[in-house]
Design a protein around this nucleic acid. Structure first.
Length: 265
DNA sequence: AACGCATTCAACCGCTCATAA
DNA sequence: GTTATGAGCGGTTGAATGCGT
């Protein structure tokens, strides 16, 4: 937490004390928050209104839940984030007791974890996945504006291990060669879709209960990790096209979304 | 036990939007 | 139509905590 300090305007910043919490809680429960800017003055707090509002909404407000997300909540967050993108407040509105700040932190934490794990794996695999993909596989991605996979929850993604890489590599170019399935192929559309801002970091198929069936084979490990999708977290990786066979493929990573994340998320 | 690195999450900041004057 | 103000949102920061060595 941040060390409390007084700013140049005489307002306190940083971590809230129990006394401050009590003052704010007592005031709002009694009078409500009719004006956040004036509220601290009336409540006897040396805080700015913004700080009071945040403290109330994220911590003091009755009914605010903390930590320990249930499986249902995780699935719902995944689904809503796919639908709404980084609209944390809109997502939070669908989860009683959860705040936008908490959900934002939750998502960032998961993304960071996954991002790190995948980049670690890629660094350990000099002959990386992309280079091992057969040309047929690559061509599939070139023109796809949307790539689907099997249902894939965050739990599955989080459990992704180096062994999955091995499975991918062993099957690359073989008769079991990965085919994303009946995807909607349209290079023109894909170009425009790539410009869509702030897409969800989860693919449609990561949405619980919305399995597309593209990866019908439940044993296909690639289906388990194919739910990644490009987003603000994976973008920095996308810039580096070092491993991409050609430029169009690099673009496709972004367009298809998921494949870029599949590699780097 | 001590240290350093990684992770978590409360809190801050800057911006946009809505509304009233 | 313009400006001022407050509320809300999303991104970022940094202290506390956890964990491995």
């Amino acid at each position: 937490m941040r060390t409390p300090f007084i700013d140049k305007n005489g307002l306190k910043k940083g971590a809230w004390s129990e006394e401050e919490d009590n003052k704010l809680r007592a005031y709002i429960l009694r009078y409500g928050h009719w004006n956040w800017r004036l509220l601290p003055k009336f409540a006897g707090l040396a805080r700015c209104g913004k700080s009071c509002r945040l403290r109330w909404l994220n911590y003091l407000k009755p009914g605010v839940k903390r930590g320990n997300y249930s499986k249902e909540e995780e699935d719902l967050i995944a689904k809503l984030h796919h639908q709404l993108g980084n609209k944390w407040s809109a997502i939070a509105a669908k989860l009683p007791g959860r705040t936008d700040n908490e959900i934002k932190n939750y998502c960032h934490t998961r993304l960071k974890k996954r991002s790190k794990r995948m980049s670690d794996l890629m660094n350990r695999q000099p002959d990386n996945l992309v280079q091992k993909q057969s040309s047929e596989e690559i061509s599939v991605f070139k023109n796809c504006k949307e790539v689907s996979s099997s249902a894939c929850s965050w739990q599955k993604l989080d459990n992704f291990q180096a062994s999955d890489i091995n499975i991918l590599e062993s099957s690359s170019g073989s008769s079991n060669s990965w085919n994303p399935g009946p995807v909607n192929c349209d290079s023109e559309d894909s170009a425009s879709s790539s410009r869509e801002p702030k897409r969800s970091f989860l693919s449609e198929e990561t949405v619980p209960g919305e399995a597309s069936g593209i990866f019908q084979d439940q044993n296909d490990e690639r289906g388990s990790i194919a739910g990644f999708e490009g987003n603000f977290w994976s973008e920095p990786f996308l810039v580096d096209t070092h491993y991409c066979p050609d430029d169009s493929f690099a673009i496709t990573l972004d367009e298809g979304g998921f494949f870029s994340a599949y590699l780097f998320a």
